[in-house]
Structure formats: C-alpha cells, structure tokens
Design a protein around this nucleic acid. Structure first.
Lengths: 215, 215
DNA sequence: TGGACTATTGGTCAGTCATTCAATAGGCTG
DNA sequence: CAGCCTATTGAATGACTGACCAATAGTCCA
C-alpha cells in the first residue's frame, strides 16, 4: 500500500537496524508465536529482503531467543510496580495476571517453555528470565515480611508457590472455552493468600480495591 | 538391522495397521514431541512407505491429534488407582506426579497446550482430555468428602486448584536445572492439603507412606 | 568531489514437510 | 487355482524453511 514495488534501498546504522529487527521479531512472537519468527516474515514486516536478517542474525535461532528475551523483559515492567506498600504491589501483580492483560505474555511463556525442549540456548535464556521474575517477586515478599505484613517465614518458598499458581493458570491460556469453575478466576489470589499466610480474602480485597479505588 | 533393504511387502488388515500407526505415533510424541510426528518418521518406524500413512490419515493433523489422545488416555491409567481410601488414592496421584514418573506426560501436555494455539481440533481434543482428568480427580475428592476425610466444601474448586498446581509445576519440566527451592518438590502435596482443607503434612505423610509401606 | 566501507539486495541451494496419484502386488474368495 | 479387491509402493509436486554469496548502492570521510 505505502511503498512502491521497487522501493529505493534504505541504509541504516547497524545498531538501529538490529534494534528494529528485534522489535518486530518480538511483536511477531507476541502475536503469533515464536515459530512465526522466520527470516521472511521479519523481513517482510520491515520492508526488507530476507538476506538482510541473516546478515544481522547469522543463526536464526539467536533471533528467536533474543526476541523472546526482549518481549519478556519489556512485559515484566507491566507486572511489577516500583513503589508502594508490599500488599499493594502484590495485589497489582495479581490483578494484572487475573485481569487477562497478561494473556499474550502467558502464551509466549508457554510457547518458550515448550520450545526450550529442543533448544538448550533458549532454555538457558528462559531460565534467566525466570530467575529475574523470581527475584522481583521475592523482593516484594521480603518487604512484606520485614514490615510484618506477610506472616510467612520463607520468602522464596512463597514466591515459588505463587509463580506456580501463575504458570498453572497460564497453562489454559490457549483454551478458548469459558472458565470451568469460578474458583479458577481467582486461583492466583487465593493461592497467594495461602502461600503468604494471609487471612483468606485479604488479597482478593486488595485486588478489588485496585480496580475500584475509593480515594 | 532386522529387515533386508528391499523388504517384501507386508499387507495387514486395515484396523490392525491403523492401530499400529497410532501406537508408534504416540510413542514418537512421548519421546520427542508432537511435532516429530511426521509421515516420514512414523513410516520409517513401521518399515513402511510414507504414502501409506497418508492412506490411513489423509490429513496429517488428525494423526497428531489421535496420537495425543491415545497417549493421554493410556497414561491416565497410571495416575488414578481404581480402588482404596480417598486419601490413599489422592496420595497415589500426587506421588506419581512428584516422583517424576509423569515427566514424559507433563512434557506432552505442555506440548499440546502450546500447539493447541494453532489447531482448533487439537484444542478440542485437549479440552476433552482435560475434562476427563477433572472428572477422575473430582470423584476422588467427592469420595473423601462423603466419608468426612476431606473437610473441603467444593469438590470442583479443590480439583481445579490441585490440577493448577500440577500444571504449574509441570511448566518447568523442560528446564534441566536442579530444583530451585526444596518447597518446589512438594508443591503439589502442599497445595493439595490446602485445597482439601487438610492439616499441613497429612498428604506429605500419606505420600511418604506409599513409598515406604510398613505392612 | 572521489573513494572506500559495508549495508542491502537478489538469486540460489539443500533440506524438510504434506499431499496426490498411477502402478504394483498381497491375500482372500469363489 | 484364478481373479478381484485394495493395501502398499514409488515418484513427483509445491510450499515452506535457513543458509550462502556475489553484485549493488547508500553514506560517510579524506
């Protein structure tokens, strides 16, 4: 539509072009899955010839991995607020998961978790990103423990339990059907309450308060 | 090894051949993943020409789906014991998951959950199998509720919570590294205790008793 | 302004995949 | 034992994929 069939060749500084490629590859991965990141698909989106992608990423697998990392890093910012009370930060995290806003990311993780079976390099990248998530979440929990807000004793154990709840409910992200049971919608909040030693309903209330702020 | 290069052509009754194809396809899926089910791969395993597979499965996708179902159905029997006290049956289920015996199946489910993104037919089959698992597990829970062994009120909610724990811990099945935290090894038992309203340690003990029976 | 560096192109190649179809031959039935 | 039915083969096709490489042309610098 926009460009003429034989568009004039545009030459960009390597760093910028590489950036551009990664951005579009990450977008493709989020939209359609990591296996849709092909030299041709990325090239077409950029209005460029496939050979150019090979020039920047001699091994296509590396592009896939870097695109995954980029998407994971970028989306993480949506999850973890930088400041606030530990309970609110936890509620924010859970609200983001339960709202469905994290669906594309959940799909991507499911995708990567499976694909890592065939690619040790992707597996390594995935574990690194996993560790970063654990770090962030553990921080929040430790904050809450310091202030006495979270009665739990072992922050890492709680973190792992919460993340397993997140991954577990994220398993169904590709199942189109409606929720099987109402409990499913709030599993993460419920399990987090249990994992953190909070009174039942504490987190659900905090999550609700986030959605309908009073003041 | 066994067959001569130009083996004589063996003609089998269609039902038997079809069965054979499905069995080998399911084996391939369990070993290397659903995407390894190719006409050529299956044919080679059977000592047969690819065209024959097409003859029985005109659309390759159907073979993949049926192979997945076959593997899922077959493996389910390993999970759910037919008789015994509800607590023991639950413990058996959890022991099977936590022992690592279910690893190949967990990999397969992860695989199918991701692939179902691209195939509505696979997605339907997957949901059907999912429902069967829920049914089996819910039965056990309802049994335990009837006898007063499980204090929980909502069997389906408990079932969903337990399965989410299973799927959540199954997410890491392709991550080669050792366990990050000891809590990870027993998440399913711990979460199940919580979901069923059992005293902490009840299920862990029951699982342990299964592994080291006294009498 | 001219020249060098290299980003970009265009084309090729080998590999994998599913699908299609006419020809072949195994084994049951009359 | 002859003949039919169809399970099975062999080969070709087209659509993908990543990788490779020589030719081309932007853009910056001397």
């Amino acid at each position: 539509m926009t460009s003429s069939p034989a568009a004039t060749r545009i030459r960009k500084p390597p760093a910028e072009r590489r950036e551009e490629i990664l951005t579009h590859a990450a977008a493709i991965a989020l939209e359609g899955g990591l296996e849709r990141i092909t030299l041709r698909a990325v090239a077409e989106r950029l209005g460029v010839r496939p050979g150019l992608i090979t020039h920047y990423f001699p091994a296509a697998e590396d592009l896939v991995i870097e695109a995954f990392v980029r998407a994971a890093v970028h989306e993480r910012e949506q999850f973890f607020p930088t400041s606030g009370e530990p309970l609110d930060r936890m509620a924010h995290f859970i609200a983001h998961v339960e709202s469905g806003a994290s669906t594309p990311l959940a799909r991507l993780w499911l995708n990567a978790r499976h694909l890592s079976r065939f690619s040790p390099a992707l597996e390594a990248a995935l574990q690194e990103q996993d560790a970063l998530d654990r770090e962030r979440l553990t921080e929040i929990i430790e904050d809450g423990m310091r202030t006495g807000r979270f009665p739990v004793a072992d922050a890492e154990a709680a973190c792992i339990r919460i993340l397993i709840a997140v991954d577990g409910s994220g398993s169904y992200v590709n199942s189109a059907s409606e929720t099987v049971h109402p409990a499913q919608d709030h599993v993460v909040a419920d399990m987090a309450e249990w994992a953190l030693g909070l009174d039942p309903g504490t987190l659900r209330a905090a999550v609700g308060a986030l959605r309908h702020p009073i003041g």
